[in-house]
Protein backbone atom coordinates (compact mmCIF):
# COMPACT_ATOMS: atom_id res chain seq x y z
CA UNK A 1 0.00 0.00 0.00
CA UNK A 2 1.07 3.56 -0.67
CA UNK A 3 -0.20 6.64 1.11
CA UNK A 4 -1.74 9.27 -1.10
CA UNK A 5 -2.77 12.75 0.03
CA UNK A 6 -4.59 15.14 -2.24
CA UNK A 7 -7.26 17.79 -2.32
CA UNK A 8 -10.53 16.79 -3.95
CA UNK A 9 -13.19 19.42 -4.50
CA UNK A 10 -11.59 21.59 -1.84
CA UNK A 11 -11.32 18.84 0.80
CA UNK A 12 -8.09 17.23 1.95
CA UNK A 13 -8.08 13.47 1.53
CA UNK A 14 -5.51 10.95 2.72
CA UNK A 15 -5.74 7.23 2.09
CA UNK A 16 -3.64 4.10 1.79
CA UNK A 17 -4.14 2.63 -1.65
CA UNK A 18 -2.84 -0.23 -3.72
CA UNK A 19 -0.50 1.57 -6.17
CA UNK A 20 -2.39 0.16 -9.14
CA UNK A 21 -5.56 2.01 -8.10
CA UNK A 22 -6.58 4.35 -10.91
CA UNK A 23 -7.53 7.91 -10.02
CA UNK A 24 -11.05 7.25 -11.30
CA UNK A 25 -11.35 4.16 -9.07
CA UNK A 26 -10.11 6.17 -6.12
CA UNK A 27 -12.68 8.89 -6.75
CA UNK A 28 -15.55 6.48 -7.30
CA UNK A 29 -14.81 3.63 -4.91
CA UNK A 30 -12.92 5.31 -2.06
CA UNK A 31 -14.57 8.73 -2.07
CA UNK A 32 -17.93 7.63 -3.52
CA UNK A 33 -17.78 10.46 -6.04
CA UNK A 34 -19.58 8.50 -8.74
CA UNK A 35 -20.26 11.45 -11.03
CA UNK A 36 -16.98 10.70 -12.78
CA UNK A 37 -17.73 7.79 -15.10
CA UNK A 38 -15.76 4.97 -16.65
CA UNK A 39 -16.75 4.55 -20.26
CA UNK A 40 -14.11 2.93 -22.43
CA UNK A 41 -11.37 2.53 -19.79
CA UNK A 42 -8.89 2.97 -22.66
CA UNK A 43 -8.23 6.77 -22.61
CA UNK A 44 -10.50 7.44 -25.55
CA UNK A 45 -14.08 8.33 -24.54
CA UNK A 46 -13.53 11.10 -21.99
CA UNK A 47 -16.34 10.07 -19.59
CA UNK A 48 -13.73 10.06 -16.80
CA UNK A 49 -12.36 13.58 -17.35
CA UNK A 50 -11.52 15.51 -14.18
CA UNK A 51 -9.29 18.50 -13.54
CA UNK A 52 -5.87 17.66 -12.11
CA UNK A 53 -4.10 20.81 -10.94
CA UNK A 54 -6.42 22.78 -13.19
CA UNK A 55 -5.92 20.69 -16.32
CA UNK A 56 -8.39 18.26 -17.87
CA UNK A 57 -7.13 14.67 -17.74
CA UNK A 58 -8.57 11.23 -18.29
CA UNK A 59 -8.68 9.82 -14.78
CA UNK A 60 -8.80 6.23 -16.08
CA UNK A 61 -5.21 6.74 -17.25
CA UNK A 62 -3.75 8.32 -14.14
CA UNK A 63 -2.78 6.37 -11.02
CA UNK A 64 -4.15 7.72 -7.78
CA UNK A 65 -0.58 7.77 -6.44
CA UNK A 66 0.46 10.01 -9.36
CA UNK A 67 -2.07 12.56 -8.09
CA UNK A 68 -0.35 12.75 -4.71
CA UNK A 69 -0.13 16.37 -3.45
CA UNK A 70 -2.38 17.48 -6.32
CA UNK A 71 -5.65 19.35 -6.50
CA UNK A 72 -8.47 17.44 -8.18
CA UNK A 73 -11.85 18.85 -9.21
CA UNK A 74 -14.67 16.55 -10.27
CA UNK A 75 -18.16 17.22 -11.60
CA UNK A 76 -19.39 17.21 -7.98
CA UNK A 77 -17.12 20.15 -7.18
CA UNK A 78 -18.21 22.77 -9.68
CA UNK A 79 -21.72 23.82 -8.59
CA UNK A 80 -21.98 26.68 -6.13
CA UNK A 81 -24.11 25.13 -3.42
CA UNK A 82 -27.52 24.55 -4.98
CA UNK A 83 -26.73 26.70 -8.00
CA UNK A 84 -25.44 24.91 -11.09
CA UNK A 85 -22.16 25.97 -12.64
CA UNK A 86 -22.88 28.05 -15.78
CA UNK A 87 -21.64 25.16 -17.96
CA UNK A 88 -23.98 22.70 -16.21
CA UNK A 89 -26.84 25.16 -16.60
CA UNK A 90 -26.07 25.55 -20.31
CA UNK A 91 -26.12 21.77 -20.85
CA UNK A 92 -29.57 21.64 -19.21
CA UNK A 93 -30.85 24.68 -21.07
CA UNK A 94 -29.67 23.47 -24.49
CA UNK A 95 -30.46 19.82 -23.89
CA UNK A 96 -26.80 18.89 -24.39
CA UNK A 97 -27.41 15.29 -23.38
CA UNK A 98 -29.67 12.33 -23.83
CA UNK A 99 -28.57 9.39 -21.68
CA UNK A 100 -26.18 11.61 -19.73
CA UNK A 101 -23.35 9.12 -19.39
CA UNK A 102 -20.78 11.28 -21.17
CA UNK A 103 -22.05 14.53 -19.64
CA UNK A 104 -19.75 14.87 -16.60
CA UNK A 105 -16.71 14.43 -18.81
CA UNK A 106 -18.13 16.75 -21.44
CA UNK A 107 -18.72 19.47 -18.86
CA UNK A 108 -15.28 19.12 -17.26
CA UNK A 109 -13.71 19.26 -20.73
CA UNK A 110 -15.85 22.23 -21.71
CA UNK A 111 -14.76 24.22 -18.65
CA UNK A 112 -11.14 23.36 -19.50
CA UNK A 113 -11.67 24.62 -23.06
CA UNK A 114 -12.99 27.94 -21.72
CA UNK A 115 -10.05 28.17 -19.31
CA UNK A 116 -7.63 27.76 -22.22
CA UNK A 117 -9.43 29.40 -25.12
CA UNK A 118 -11.62 32.06 -23.54
CA UNK A 119 -15.33 32.76 -23.50
CA UNK A 120 -15.99 33.45 -27.18
CA UNK A 121 -15.77 29.99 -28.74
CA UNK A 122 -16.73 29.31 -32.35
CA UNK A 123 -18.24 26.02 -33.41
CA UNK A 124 -15.09 24.81 -35.15
CA UNK A 125 -12.97 25.35 -32.04
CA UNK A 126 -15.48 23.58 -29.80
CA UNK A 127 -15.75 20.58 -32.12
CA UNK A 128 -11.95 20.29 -32.44
CA UNK A 129 -11.40 20.64 -28.70
CA UNK A 130 -14.05 18.01 -27.87
CA UNK A 131 -12.29 15.34 -29.90
CA UNK A 132 -11.38 13.47 -26.72
CA UNK A 133 -15.01 13.18 -25.57
CA UNK A 134 -17.36 10.73 -27.21
CA UNK A 135 -21.16 10.96 -27.09
CA UNK A 136 -23.13 8.11 -28.63
CA UNK A 137 -26.57 9.78 -28.35
CA UNK A 138 -26.71 13.37 -29.40
CA UNK A 139 -24.72 13.74 -32.59
CA UNK A 140 -22.98 16.56 -30.69
CA UNK A 141 -25.08 19.44 -32.05
CA UNK A 142 -26.66 20.38 -28.76
CA UNK A 143 -23.45 19.74 -26.88
CA UNK A 144 -21.66 22.23 -29.11
CA UNK A 145 -24.45 24.78 -28.55
CA UNK A 146 -24.31 24.17 -24.82
CA UNK A 147 -20.54 24.65 -24.65
CA UNK A 148 -20.76 27.94 -26.55
CA UNK A 149 -23.54 29.16 -24.26
CA UNK A 150 -21.80 27.90 -21.13
CA UNK A 151 -18.62 29.67 -22.19
CA UNK A 152 -20.54 32.93 -22.47
CA UNK A 153 -22.23 32.20 -19.15
CA UNK A 154 -18.86 31.73 -17.47
CA UNK A 155 -17.87 35.22 -18.59
CA UNK A 156 -20.88 36.60 -16.74
CA UNK A 157 -20.13 34.63 -13.61
CA UNK A 158 -18.20 37.38 -11.78
CA UNK A 159 -20.96 39.88 -12.59
CA UNK A 160 -23.70 37.74 -11.08
CA UNK A 161 -21.55 37.06 -8.04
CA UNK A 162 -20.94 40.77 -7.66
CA UNK A 163 -24.68 41.38 -7.81
CA UNK A 164 -25.43 38.96 -5.00
Amino acid sequence: MTTVSLTVNGQSVTADVDPRTLLVQFLRDNLRLTGTHVGCDTSQCGACVVHLNGQAVKSCTVLAVQANASVVTTIEGIADGGELHPMQAAFREHHGLQCGFCTPGMIMSAIDIVNRKGNALDEQTIRAELEGNLCRCTGYHNIVKAVAAGARGMAQEPLSQAAE
Binding site: V57, S109, E131, G132
Partner: peptide, 9 residues
Protein backbone atom coordinates in the same frame (compact mmCIF):
# COMPACT_ATOMS: atom_id res chain seq x y z
CA UNK B 1 -0.96 14.28 -30.79
CA UNK B 2 -4.01 12.53 -29.32
CA UNK B 3 -6.60 14.85 -27.81
CA UNK B 4 -6.36 17.71 -25.29
CA UNK B 5 -6.50 15.36 -22.28
CA UNK B 6 -3.81 13.10 -23.67
CA UNK B 7 -1.66 16.15 -24.42
CA UNK B 8 -2.00 17.19 -20.78
CA UNK B 9 -0.31 13.97 -19.65
Amino acid sequence: IGDPHVRNR
